[in-house]
Simulated assay, not measured.
Amino acid sequence: MKYLVTLATASLALSLASCEKRDGFALADTDGNQSISYQEFDRFMLEAIYSSVDVDGDSKVTLEEYLASGSDATKEGFKKVDANGDGVITPEEAKAFWESQQTMKSLFKKIDTNGDGQLSQEEVKTFFDKAAKAEGKTDLEKLSNAASQ
C-alpha cells in the first residue's frame, strides 16, 4: 500500500506547481465548476501517475520503468499490478489495481478536508503546504508522508 501512496504522491509532486496555478487546477476540473470531483481527481491522477512511470510513453509500464519509479517498487509489487502476467502494466491494469486498493479514494478523502466530495483550490493548496512541511529527505518522501498521516 505504501508504494501506491508513493505513486499517488509522485503524481501530486509532478502536478504541485500546476495545481497551485489556475491552469493546472483547470486541467483536473474538466467541467469548469471551480472544484474537482472524485471522478475528475481519479482520471487526472491515473493519467498523471501512469505517464510519470511510463517514461517512454508507449502505454506499457515495463518492470524496468516500474523499478525505476520509486524506492518502494519491487518485482513482487509489479507482479500484483500486472494482472495477466505478460510483463507490462497497461493503464487498464493500473486502474483496476488502484481501484481494488481504494488508493485514490483514500487520497481524495485526505485532501477533501471539509468532506463535501469536492476538492477546492484551497484544499489542494493546504494539502501541498502540509506536504512541504512533512518529514522527508526529498519532495516525494514529504508528499508520501503527508498522504499517510
Rank of each mutant, 00 (worst) to 15 (best):
T90C: 10
K142C: 07
K130I: 09
T113H: 09
G57W: 07
S51R: 03
F41C: 09
Y50P: 00
Y50G: 00
Q149C: 05
E76W: 10
T9V: 09
K2T: 08
G57E: 00
E65G: 04
E93C: 04
A131P: 01
L27D: 13
Y50V: 00
I36F: 03
S11D: 07
G115N: 03
K125C: 00
D42V: 02
I49K: 01
F127W: 14
P91F: 00
L27A: 15
A10S: 13
F127A: 04
A94T: 02
D72T: 03
T138E: 06
F108M: 12
L4D: 06
E20L: 15
I89C: 10
G115K: 08
K110W: 00
R22S: 14
R22Y: 04
L67M: 13
T30H: 05
I89L: 06
A13Q: 03
L16W: 01
F127R: 02
L63A: 12
K137W: 10
F78Q: 07
E64S: 13
G85H: 10
I89P: 02
Q102G: 01
E40W: 02
K109W: 07
S59F: 08
W98F: 08
M104Y: 11
G85A: 07
D82C: 11
S15Y: 01
Q149H: 08
T74N: 12
S106Q: 11
A73R: 15
S35Q: 08
A146F: 00
A17V: 13
I49H: 00
F41T: 01
Q34L: 14
T6Q: 15
L107C: 08
K75I: 11
K60V: 08
S100A: 06
S71T: 12
C19M: 06
F128Q: 11
V61A: 05
M1E: 09
M45Y: 07
E92N: 11
T9Y: 01
A83S: 15
E65S: 06
T113M: 08
S37M: 09
L4G: 03
F97L: 08
G24L: 14
F128S: 04
L46I: 03
S148N: 06
A94W: 06
D72A: 13
T62V: 12
D23L: 14
L140P: 04
E122A: 15
K110N: 04
R22E: 14
T9I: 05
F97C: 08
V88T: 00
E122F: 10
T6E: 12
G70M: 13
R43M: 07
W98A: 03
L7V: 10
T113C: 00
F41L: 03
K75A: 10
